[in-house]
Design a protein around this nucleic acid. Structure first.
Lengths: 249, 249
DNA sequence: CGTTTTCTTGATGTAACTCAAGTCTAGTGG
DNA sequence: CCACTAGACTTGAGTTACATCAAGAAAACG
């Protein structure tokens, strides 16, 4: 029997470092492209170690000296920031082939935790910088990846700017769906490795509101849940038109 | 008489391309650092042209083929996206020494306009890519700049996640103040080149709410306006503590 | 199989949106 | 230089959507 792989979090061949993104210049029909050549992956492999994290483990903390960049090979991570008002803001969710470890003046900007069990390549920053200053093509690929992350961060802001709770959640689901499609295609089912509370802290509303909004979308048959972690967008059209109008239908 | 320069938008010596950012590794005490060497600035100057925009002029539109990257030398720009619901989301404000022109698959992701009269260096993308693939150090500097922009975009999301209108506006003012301090220091006065409506579309609330929130902050003596475009943070402490507690004092 | 964590659902208050009228400001032409 | 006008901003009143508080249900875990 063919094993289940569409979660993107289990059973991925861990055959070395890998980085993917939607390109800056070349058309790719919305598809994510593997950026690194065999040689480049070897170069990175030579300076990196494989590390493993359990669900909920902390990968690094905001403010810590930034010693490493992480390249996820399996599992899902979240980055977040503790806000002055005592709440938590989730900055983003990270999947295999993503990079983790943004810093400013030598210190991590956000904290990072494993959402699921996770493996990653750990790249020491000095060695990485060395490598990049020597190999312009490899560096170019990192640059393209960074542009991808920048677009993601901007999209996050756009989602947060959305007024109604339903629109915001709908946009989030579209985002997950697009990323799913860009990666594998697969069954069409969206996988939610994160908790409702993670989603709330990512979308900027309360846990209760997330729950209610999911229910409303399900009641209107725009989505359907297989279980709490797996859902299907049942009506892409109406979901999109929900985002378009601000008045709740 | 010494002419007025603290707006950061007028009378800057346009002595060639220049890119600044808070570094990734090196400590700089929160200060913005000029990233490019003389030689690197020359290299960029050789492939670029100076272009000029009037207030409100469009620099490029989302979806257009991405032919250029812009390096602002004077004035302020905004990038934005038209949302399906008919509203506008402002992605960011851009100042001298910033880069403009993020693309995906060869097309601009956002639209860009001049907030004030503006001059910029216009870099053709193929020439730029060529340059970068040849010069790893220059490319490294662009990479550092991109990390800076990524942190900015993340901070934007954090601001939008803030619950109360006052907190959100206060955070925005802190952001502007930090960026002012990182650049010049100057008079301590914050300059708002953008309209109230721009601020509303950046912070994700209504024009009316921006106005009211400014008024409330001024009434409580946390800030003071010289005119609509220039304000002073009168009490940094209480402004910070306003952000820390969610309940309005 | 019991315990803990995560999630759902209900009731209430409030902050901010909308709509709308009025004021200020800057830019233009007489 | 001043009057005029158009756009930008402020302020007010009513309404609604979501946060908050709180209790109950369902998974997940050992």
């Amino acid at each position: 029997m063919v094993h289940n792989d569409h979660d993107g979090s289990r059973s991925r061949r861990t055959d070395g470092p890998s980085i993917s993104a939607i390109p800056y210049q070349e058309a790719s029909d919305g598809k994510i492209t593997r950026l690194l050549s065999e040689r480049e992956r070897d170069l990175i492999a030579q300076i990196s170690l494989t590390v493993r994290f359990g669900r909920g483990d902390t990968i690094y903390r905001a403010g810590d000296p930034a010693a490493f960049v992480y390249n996820i090979s399996s599992g899902v991570a979240r980055t977040y920031r503790a806000l002055p008002d005592g709440t938590r803001a989730i900055i983003g969710f990270f999947f295999p082939d993503d990079l983790l470890g943004l810093a400013e003046e030598g210190a991590y900007v956000n904290s990072a935790q494993a959402v699921t069990a996770m493996t990653a390549y750990r790249l020491p920053l000095p060695a990485l910088e060395n490598l990049l200053r020597r190999d312009a093509t490899l560096e170019w690929h990192i640059l393209v990846k960074l542009c991808h992350e920048l677009r993601d961060a901007q999209l996050h802001a756009v989602i947060l700017k959305q007024q109604g709770a339903l629109s915001r959640l709908a946009l989030f689901l579209q985002l997950l769906d697009r990323s799913r499609r860009a990666r594998d295609g697969g069954s069409g089912e969206i996988y939610l490795p994160m908790t409702r509370s993670d989603i709330a802290d990512y979308l900027g509303f309360s846990l209760a509101a997330v729950s209610r909004s999911f229910r409303t979308l399900a009641d209107r048959r725009l989505i359907s849940f297989r279980d709490r972690r797996h859902l299907l967008i049942a009506d892409h059209e109406r979901l999109a038109s929900l985002i378009a109008q601000q008045a709740p239908e």
